[in-house]
Design a protein around this nucleic acid. Structure first.
Lengths: 227, 227
DNA sequence: TCTGTTTTTTAGCTTGATCTAAATATTTTT
DNA sequence: AAAAATATTTAGATCAAGCTAAAAAACAGA
C-alpha cells in the first residue's frame, strides 16, 4: 500500500524545478550529479538538496546513492523534458507573438512552465506551428520527449574563412543576450570568420555580409554555429 | 519595524485565491462575508479560513472583526481585480487564439492568473486588442481596476416580444456552458422572446432569427441580456 | 430570557520546503 | 596512511497551508 500512485507520479512545483536542474547538470558529463552542484544551481542549501533527493528517489525519477550523487532515471528524464518542452514553447510564444526580447523571456517562462494542462500545450504548439527550436536556438522536445538536434560548433572552433549560421547560445544570461543584441548578432545570422588572433583567441567576423564584428574568445565560446 | 513592506504587499498563491473568493462573495450584498461562505467557496474547512483571514487582515487587504465576517479594503479590491483581470484576459486568449471552447478555459485560467509579470499582461492585453469582456461576457478590469459595465437583465425578466443580445452567463459551470453550446446559444447571439409560460416560467425564444428554443426558468435565470 | 443550535475561533497536528548546526563520509594532502 | 579539508547527511527548527477536535461566541426558538 506504500506506493499506490507510482504509475502516475505527479511532481510538485519545487520537485519539477529540482528535476530540471538535475537534468541540465547531467547533460554532457554522464557521471552522477553532486549535491553541491544542485545546491548551487537551485540556490538552496546542500541540506535542503539532500532532503529533496530522498523524495525524488522515492518517486523513482532519480537514482540516488548517498554520498555519491544522483543520476536521472528514464522516467525522470521524460518528465524533465516535458517541463523543458513547456518552457521553450512559452519562450517562442513570448518572443514571436508578444514581442518580448529574448533576454526578457526566461523568468516568465520559468513560471509558465509549471502550468498543468496537456491540452494547453498541445494547442499552443499548434498555434506556434510546431516550432523545433526556441528563441535561443535550443531544441524543443516533442510530446514524447524526443528532440531534433543539429550538429553544432562553437564559434571559436571555426577556422579563418569558415562560414556558418548562429543557431544557439550557450550562455543565456540577460547580460550576454543584450550584448549580442547591441552588436547585431541574433539566431539565424549568417557569419564568416575574417580573422583569428592567435594571441588571445579573439576573432573578427562578418555578419550577414554587411557588418564587421570583433568578438573576444570569451564571447565566441558561447555562440553555437551550424556550418 | 513590524510592517516594513506594507507599501508593496505581495500575496501568496493561496492568499490571492482567498482574496478573489472574498471579492466575489462581496459583490451584490454589501455586508460582510462569513467564514462559512468562504469555506464553502474555497472548499477548505472553516478553521483554515479563520487562519487565513488573520493573515489577510495583517496584510491590510481585508477588514476583519472576529465573529462578524470580513469586508474587503480598497487595497484588497485593487489586488483582487488585478487577479480577475489576468484570469479573464487569459480566457480571451485561450478561446480566441487557442480555440478552447468556453467550458474548457476556467481551470487553466485559474492557474495562469497567478503568473506574476506585469509586462506579460500588458503585452497580452495589447495582443488581444484590449478586450473589454471575457468569453462569458464578464467585464475585464483595466490595469487600474476599473471596469466597463453594461446594464443587463436576466432572460427570465424579459417580456414577451422583447428582444436583446446574450452578453453573459451567471452560472459558468462547464455543464451549463456545454448545454448552451448544444442548443446553439452563445455570447453575442440575438434573441427574441416568443412565448412565456406563466405556469413554470419557461419560455420560447428565437435565436439569431433562425432557431426556436425552449428554455426552463432555471436556465433563463442564468442568462444575462443586453437590450 | 434562557437554552439549544449553529457558527466561528483556538489549540494542536501534519506535510512540504526551506534553514542552521552538528555529525559523518569522502577526498586530498603531506 | 593519517590528518586536514571538503562534501554530504542527519537532527531539529521554522513557516505556510491545510486538517480535526474542542472551546467560545452569536443566534434563534420556545
Amino acid at each position: 500500500m506504500k506506493n499506490k500512485k507510482d504509475l502516475m507520479t505527479i511532481l510538485s512545483y519545487a520537485e519539477e524545478n529540482y528535476l530540471k536542474a538535475i537534468y541540465h547538470l547531467s547533460e554532457g558529463g554522464n557521471k552522477g550529479v553532486s549535491t553541491n552542484d544542485i545546491s548551487n544551481e537551485m540556490k538552496t542549501k546542500p541540506a535542503s538538496v539532500s532532503d529533496m533527493l530522498r523524495k525524488l528517489a522515492e518517486k523513482a525519477v532519480i537514482d540516488y546513492r548517498k554520498y555519491y550523487g544522483v543520476t536521472i532515471t528514464e522516467a525522470g528524464k521524460k518528465m524533465a523534458l516535458q517541463v523543458i518542452r513547456k518552457h521553450r514553447l512559452w519562450e517562442v510564444f513570448l518572443v514571436e507573438k508578444l514581442k518580448f526580447s529574448w533576454d526578457e523571456v526566461h523568468e516568465v517562462a520559468e513560471e509558465l512552465e509549471h502550468v498543468k494542462s496537456p491540452l494547453l500545450m498541445q494547442r499552443l504548439d499548434e498555434y506556434l506551428n510546431y516550432p523545433k527550436f526556441d528563441p535561443h536556438g535550443d531544441p524543443i522536445p516533442d510530446e514524447y520527449g524526443d528532440l531534433k538536434s543539429r550538429p553544432r560548433l562553437l564559434l571559436n572552433e571555426l577556422d579563418i574563412h569558415d562560414t556558418g549560421q548562429i543557431v544557439a547560445v550557450k550562455d543565456s544570461s540577460a547580460a550576454f543576450l543584450r550584448y549580442l543584441d547591441k552588436v547585431g548578432a541574433y539566431i539565424g545570422a549568417r557569419i564568416k570568420v575574417l580573422e583569428k588572433v592567435e594571441f588571445d583567441g579573439s576573432l573578427e567576423i562578418l555578419v550577414d555580409n554587411r557588418k564587421n564584428l570583433f568578438v573576444s574568445r570569451e564571447v565566441a565560446s558561447n555562440i553555437l554555429i551550424l556550418q
